[in-house]
Design a protein around this nucleic acid. Structure first.
Lengths: 306, 306
DNA sequence: ATCACTATTGTTTTAAAGACAATAATAGAT
DNA sequence: ATCTATTATTGTCTTTAAAACAATAGTGAT
């Protein structure tokens, strides 16, 4: 029995929920799938699918098996790709996932040049602040804010991701400069919302953390909208240096300084990391993109932010 | 093409270093292997094996592929086993790896009873202080001293693994009781050797670590030999409470107490952990053994050592 | 240079998967 | 409750791929 083929059939049936639809995907008659899946079940001594003429669904043990083999098929495909592309020129589809703000501001502007350098690479970019589980899924490169990955994933620190407080000149004129962190509690706040929720203003004074958030004017996961509001003098905003760089340069927004530094989390090393699976660095397209992104972003990051 | 079969052939050829030998293992003619491996190479567009009539060895890319698929075959086999044994009675071969001393003193004595409870399980026990990479290899359950595993591995704390200093009455009579940790520097030492090297006597005084090791009389990775020497009054020994339990009970060895506790590493939580892959707990034989070992060892550990 | 062993190639045989038609079963509509 | 359209399955034939077996060619060791 060709177990691998049987497993591929099985997975497709699960995904489409139908032998007929799955058969179409392989351009073989449904009877083939029916027989192969039956073979597989026989060889495993267990029923994987509960069938009726209308509906096909996984049994309990089928679910376990499906999750396992799905990942195995993925790994096998990646190994094949590694070998196939070994020492060839970078090409093929490359999937990059990045945080929204960072992706828009930093990554996307670089990618035109990257495409020009590697015309045979087809880019597939997803911007999302939800963290994708690198390794299990179909992303080649992920760019995420400070969390520690597992051992098989390489993390390269791209840039500092610490949040700084800013406000427009007009706001300061109207409400005065807060002369210490505690005074922020009386100031209007524009709050960035991470996937985990709105980010408070925190301040560490003599080893003690204090929440110094002021009344909220607006909360959003869209950094540039908040920045616009800050420019309009609606409140104080905490955001990353890289997101605010253009406003700081133009003078539209001014950084506020305090004796005790502000943060939005008690976690110390906030940074943006580029993540990829160790083994995938052997694939030319992945290596090309990792090298390119790390070089460009680290350079620009050091110039602008550190 | 039956890719999986081709991969199995390929792996066996790598392992035996010969098409002929590998063919024997599958009871098929060598020509089959030759063709299948050639198919595989063709489909990957790369040469995996460098052949000559006498010797077969991996190419550079072949090595990469071999390492990958080896693991994939392993995972697939485990998934199949999970399904096959789903909700059956515990049976089959079960591989346990344990630290030598702990294995001899604690684990092995329990296993007769385990075998009686689960007669269909064939035990395969390896005692070694080298750490095996659970997950990549063929061990179902590993028992190891305090190190943190990765996410897919479950670690259950079995027992405290802190080292305590002991000596025989005769030794103390002759050399006197060391009245503080620093005084140990003038006492004869019997040193246990971990895989990382001999274990020193360390002492934390007011947040500062001091090495208070005395002159060495003997160094060994064999705990019971050292214990014998300690009984004979040859020196002071630091070992685990569980290894010394019988000697402490009989009074052959006496625990030494100091104001500042002794240790053999600066790492705080020294413990013995039972490790297994999360997914494998679904396999009845693994679940049976994990449950059994955890229950018995935790109970006996609490009685004797804590 | 020869020998013994090994991988490969040609050719035939066997086994397994695909194709196609027909059947049985069932959810949803009438 | 009956009918219908769709779906999985089963039977049978065809095609394809792998196994067997014999023969060949290449290579490291003697």
């Amino acid at each position: 029995m060709d177990q691998l083929r049987a497993i591929r059939y099985f997975c497709k049936v699960v995904e489409t929920g139908s032998f007929t639809k799955a058969a179409k995907a392989f351009n073989v008659p449904p009877s083939s799938l029916s027989r192969r899946v039956a073979d597989l079940e026989k060889s495993l001594g267990a029923t994987l699918l509960k069938r009726s003429t209308r509906i096909v669904k996984l049994t309990e043990v089928g679910q376990i098996y499906y999750k396992d083999v799905q990942q195995i098929l993925n790994q096998l495909e990646q190994s094949n790709e590694t070998v196939r592309s070994y020492q060839t020129t970078p090409m093929g589809s490359l999937r990059i996932s990045s945080m929204v703000g960072f992706g828009e501001k930093i990554v996307l502007p670089l990618l035109d040049e990257f495409s020009a350098l590697f015309p045979e690479i087809v880019l597939d970019i997803s911007l999302s602040d939800e963290l994708s589980t690198l390794g299990r899924d179909d992303v080649d490169i992920a760019i995420r804010g400070g969390y520690a990955p597992n051992e098989r994933v390489i993390a390269i620190r791209l840039m500092d991701n610490g949040f700084i407080p800013v406000a427009s000149a007009s706001y300061i004129e109207k409400h005065g400069t807060p002369n210490n962190a505690m005074a922020l509690k009386n100031h209007n706040g524009l709050y960035f919302k991470a996937p985990s929720g709105p980010t408070p203003w925190l301040c560490n004074i003599n080893g003690q953390w204090h929440d110094v958030s002021g009344p909220a004017i607006a909360i959003s996961n869209n950094g540039s909208w908040l920045a616009k509001k800050a420019c309009a003098g609606e409140g104080i905003l905490m955001s990353t240096r890289w997101a605010l760089a253009s406003y700081l340069e133009s003078g539209e927004l001014l950084e506020l300084h305090f004796d005790h530094p502000l943060a939005i989390t008690q976690n110390a090393d906030m940074a943006v990391y580029l993540l990829y699976q160790k083994q995938r660095y052997l694939v030319p397209k992945v290596k090309a993109a990792v090298d390119f992104l790390v070089e460009r972003i680290k350079v620009s990051g050091n110039r602008g932010a550190m």
